[in-house]
Write a protein that binds this DNA or RNA. Structure first.
Lengths: 156, 156
DNA sequence: TATTGTTATACTCTATAACTATA
DNA sequence: TATAGTTATAGAGTATAACAATA
């Protein structure tokens, strides 16, 4: 080979079939997105996993812990620790219902409500920044396709 | 069991703006994809990160370690450990070039070549399984959009 | 001084399995 | 017996910062 200078090599590698691998592209895109999240929101004390959990519980109060774990693809063992952390922080409350005392139902505390509300704008702003790289059409296509892959969202 | 109520709760949560968040959907889709990767390929001793690295080095021999880290969005500190592991496994060789003795250039060993070659079919099969959930059109749209987001692939 | 890669520490998340308490 | 959640351990990946060698 030896046809390439170093900066050319920097710009465009040969990925072969990997360039058409959904899994690989998802991985790269997701890591980029996390970087962007931290750039925008780490100063506000937000972590993607924690904020997502609080957000979803806020919209679905009384949700069972296991249901949440399955929906967010978080492993039960990790969910336990995540919930403990957010309970300690005063954002989340746990309630064991009478009809099935094995389970745990989650809700935001007033402090949790306030925390989500105060970060809501920053989160939506980040959301908008992610859209910036795409046209409106592309954005709709992408969210629809990812929604189809994940079973989330779909026709709203 | 109050099965009806549980199924309903299980099926469709309210995600609010999160259902249209590219970052959130990427995260869920990517976790699913990793699960699928492990189902198909963990028996072959493949891990996504390691196989990707070997694959790309195989297609771009003499690649600099730092270039690879930036392209694959792997942090330098982690890249060092990843490379050490693959060198120990006998799949990767390191060479310090004369013209810049700070840098490291990577190539597959014969063992590494054989390893990638022997897993190539299983990897392409996994790749095909990921496509199965989408029509050809949707697949092309998705890879094109992710390619645009990541700067990988694009017009070949 | 800046860059390349290494080392070290800490944290997040995942994988797995054993455990409890309920059903 | 099965299910919901917990605990414990190991590992993969990331963030951060300090560091050595080289440019």
């Amino acid at each position: 080979m030896a046809r390439a200078a170093e900066d050319l090599e920097e710009e465009r590698l040969d990925y072969g079939a990997l360039a058409e691998s959904v899994g690989f592209l998802l991985r790269i895109a997701q890591v980029q997105s996390f970087d962007m999240f931290f750039e925008h929101l780490s100063a506000k004390g937000l972590k993607p996993g924690e904020f997502t959990l609080l957000w979803v519980v806020g919209l679905n109060p009384g949700l069972r812990q296991g249901t949440l774990a399955r929906q967010l693809r978080i492993k039960p063992a990790h969910m336990t620790k995540l919930v403990q952390r957010l309970v300690s922080a005063g954002y989340l409350s746990r309630q064991v219902p009478e009809d099935d005392r094995r389970s745990v139902r989650l809700a935001l505390t007033p402090g949790g409500e306030a925390f989500v509300a105060s970060r809501r704008d920053a989160f939506l702003q980040f959301h908008a920044a992610e859209r910036a790289a795409l046209t409106d059409d592309e954005f709709r296509q992408l969210t629809a396709l990812l929604g189809k892959l994940t079973g989330i969202g779909g026709p709203t």
